[in-house]
Design a binder for these strands. Structure first.
Ligand code: SF4
Ligand code: SF4
Lengths: 157, 157
DNA sequence: TGTTTATGAGAGTCTTTTATCCAAAATAGG
DNA sequence: CCTATTTTGGATAAAAGACTCTCATAAACA
């Protein structure tokens, strides 16, 4: 997989948060229920996002987790880097350790190009954009559910 | 990793073979030594390539393995598909199971574009091209060695 | 016949990823 | 102060991936 499972879960959670009222703390349990991700597992992932300065958390009743910046200002790449690191954007197509630009292997040019495509995809999309598009076109977010699961919460349906 | 390790090993072996006199059977042991891959592991991988019709094998003394087609006619994608399957070229950026084009998720368009970049990279490069480029520019093939390890064999150095 | 070399099944090890559990700390509210 | 809630962080366990090795079989050769 291009992105690790942790990373995908982190992205989904981030989309979920971007769709909430900004500044409100959302309990992880609520997210894990809605997104159908193991609570404990999601917890670990969100801890990483908190450590990386993407989320902030608050303990106790009415506590939870929220985005530090507004969804408009968070490109997907931030979440990906926080969880999967930069390997995806720097790794070698042929899996050779210790690659240096000085002695590139034959695939390097084309691979770098394809990799940049991935990078720009992640840099140019923000959480809010994705939520917006998901809402407008009623796209899917989990295998079973579409973005409606996000709105249920917000709109109290 | 974009490509599994098995796949990378398979590619390296294929490059090795493409650099040999066409039609000559090369023992797997020779390749595993040169390429610094576990003999048993490489054997498994090459069995797949044989099963997929990329290699043919010959038992007994003077036996080994060779490319069925000439290296010029083998795009990298053939090897990748034989070992890693088509998942790489069809998988979903967000890891959603059972994706249908009918209800794409928001990333779909950009992701499909990036994925096509990878696909064309693998389709447009042939084994021979890579060997050629590696030879001309003395590029690296393993972490330690460059393409010279291929020539040592051929030229009997 | 005996040696070489691939085939195919399979067991075993090691590492990374994915997932679960639990005790501790912080907070809110009664 | 007490209790329920919620994140934190450490530890553990299960699953998947990446190897390593063995063995029995088959084909080719000499
Ligand atoms: S030069 Fe080759 S080994 Fe290095 S990053 Fe590029 S593809 Fe990978
Ligand atoms: S539509 Fe979304 S879920 Fe489907 S393949 Fe594209 S990115 Fe993946």
């Amino acid at each position: 997989m291009l992105l690790s499972k942790s990373c995908v879960y982190g992205l989904r959670a981030a989309l979920f948060l971007a769709n909430q009222e900004h500044g409100k703390f959302i309990p992880i349990r609520q997210m894990s229920d809605k997104l159908e991700i193991s609570f404990h597992f999601l917890t670990k992932i969100l801890q990483q996002l908190t450590a990386e300065g993407i989320l902030e958390s608050f303990k106790g009743p009415n506590g939870g987790v929220r985005l530090i910046k507004r969804g408009e200002q968070i490109p997907l790449i931030d979440v990906v880097l926080a969880i999967d690191g930069s390997e995806l954007l720097t790794e070698c197509a042929l899996g050779l350790p210790g690659c240096g630009v000085k002695e590139p292997c034959p695939l390097h040019d084309k691979w770098a190009e394809a990799r940049d495509g991935i990078r720009s995809m992640l840099e140019e999309s923000t959480l809010t954009e994705l939520v917006q598009k998901g809402r407008d076109e009623n796209l899917r977010l989990t295998s079973e559910n579409g973005f409606d699961i996000l709105f249920e919460v917000k709109e109290g349906v």
